[in-house]
Design a protein around this nucleic acid. Structure first.
Lengths: 238, 238
DNA sequence: TATAATAGTGGCAGAGTGCCCCTATTTAGT
DNA sequence: ACTAAATAGGGGCACTCTGCCACTATTATA
């Protein structure tokens, strides 16, 4: 038997990209009540008649607004209670998605008004609608945790990249500096990259080799932590 | 606006305890269609009028059936699609719970008929109702992953335990043997235990010290992996 | 008193770690 | 041409962490 009381089931997605500088998240300005005028994570109501699955719903929600294929999407958590939406008991499943900076076409899609990229950390992203302050914090935390032992940050780059770009993606996601030597050692020993043979020069310096993810190794889990466990280098500990 | 099509929202819980030997999961024999007569994870329909939150719903579902307070409950993931329930589009949020073996009182609670503890791994827990085969596998996998770097397995024991019992809890959860010296070193250096001053003897052997979790350290995250990353000892690799 | 079984600890060889510093490669400037 | 400047890439060292073996300690029983 179905629920006796109506229950709102939604999906919210935290889409991240590499900003300049720092991690950026996609926010949408709400046009309807509740929280009209507030910024919120893009989301939508689950429609059984058109969504094959919850993840399809999340992917469609972002694809509609952003007009871009998501190279990475992952479920974070589900929140359900009577307080988060003034309209009543509601459930939302939060997803985390990454896009490459170059591949964004904000002009595509139907309802693109009010779409903004905002720094994912810091005071600029407080005061979001519903409980999205917490949802965003959860997504950022999950993202940083994944970066410690998986190759997830690579999805923030295009298909080809230099080791420096890859390290900067990692540092942006984890919000801390990494040792260059240790980073290169771990990535290269993991055997997840292949040399394209090409080079990339950015000014009057020695050009860097251009790599790409080896086919089948896009979702690598490192046997050792990407940051060492010895010392803390920079900001936020633990 | 709410969903235009009715949508079944449920909660399922994988409750684990230490068996003899091995990890055991609580299953319930379904009395109603669909899948009448099949074994399934205990679960229930989310009732907005009586559940304050999704997690409350999960805790209540188990407490009703098991008559025991859950020392640990954690959300695993949410599955939603049109195929998992023959009645139509449904969403379930899976929770993972641990109970201490000693504290179980299966006689309490209202609807205790058809409750069984079954080995959590192996052929005895296939053929569950709905997609619960996969849900159970996901919960077992999450449990083993958590054990690698958190003190989660301690919740499978009573308040007091010896280091041997603690190590056996870890080995049961991870389904692999651990090195005794390394285990003791890591646990003691973490500073999460306090000596009760008491001892526990089991036969004609030297008695072991009895420890308890230091208050405030029940949910410890280890700075280093609980299993080393050097070598695999016995069964299931990576 | 010897025996058997478990509890608890010392210590070592080798792998993993951050880190310093060296060399290589490019363009701009003189 | 030659130097300067900046980044790319790697060698290697001191230190830490790892699994593992072996040793001592403690108990009851024969």
């Amino acid at each position: 038997m179905p629920q006796s009381t109506p229950l709102l089931v939604t999906v919210d997605v935290a889409v991240f990209r590499l900003g300049s500088p720092g991690l950026e998240v996609l926010l949408v300005e709400r046009e309807e009540a509740p929280f009209a005028g507030c910024m919120a994570l893009p989301g939508g109501i689950v429609r059984p008649e058109s969504d094959a699955s919850l993840e399809d719903c999340a992917a469609r929600t972002v694809a509609d607004k952003l007009g871009v294929r998501l190279p990475y999407i992952e479920q974070v958590a589900t929140t359900g209670n009577a307080d988060r939406d003034p309209r009543g008991w509601s459930i939302t499943t939060l997803y985390l998605a990454l896009v490459a900076h170059a591949g964004i076409r904000l002009s595509a899609g139907a309802r693109v008004r009010g779409l903004h990229w905002r720094p994912a950390r810091g005071p600029e992203v407080t005061g979001l609608a519903f409980d999205h302050d917490r949802l965003l914090a959860d997504a950022v935390e999950r993202l940083a945790a994944r970066a410690q032992y998986t190759s997830l940050p690579a999805h923030l780059l295009g298909p080809d990249f230099t080791l420096r770009e890859l390290q900067e993606a990692w540092e942006t996601v984890m919000d801390r500096s990494l040792d260059r030597r240790a980073f290169r050692r771990r990535v290269m020993e993991a055997g997840i990259l292949e040399d394209t043979g090409r080079q990339f020069a950015e000014g009057a310096m020695r050009p860097a080799r251009v790599y790409r993810a080896r086919p089948g190794h896009e979702r690598h889990v490192f046997s050792h932590n990407m940051i060492g466990s010895r010392r803390r280098a920079d900001g936020n500990a633990d």
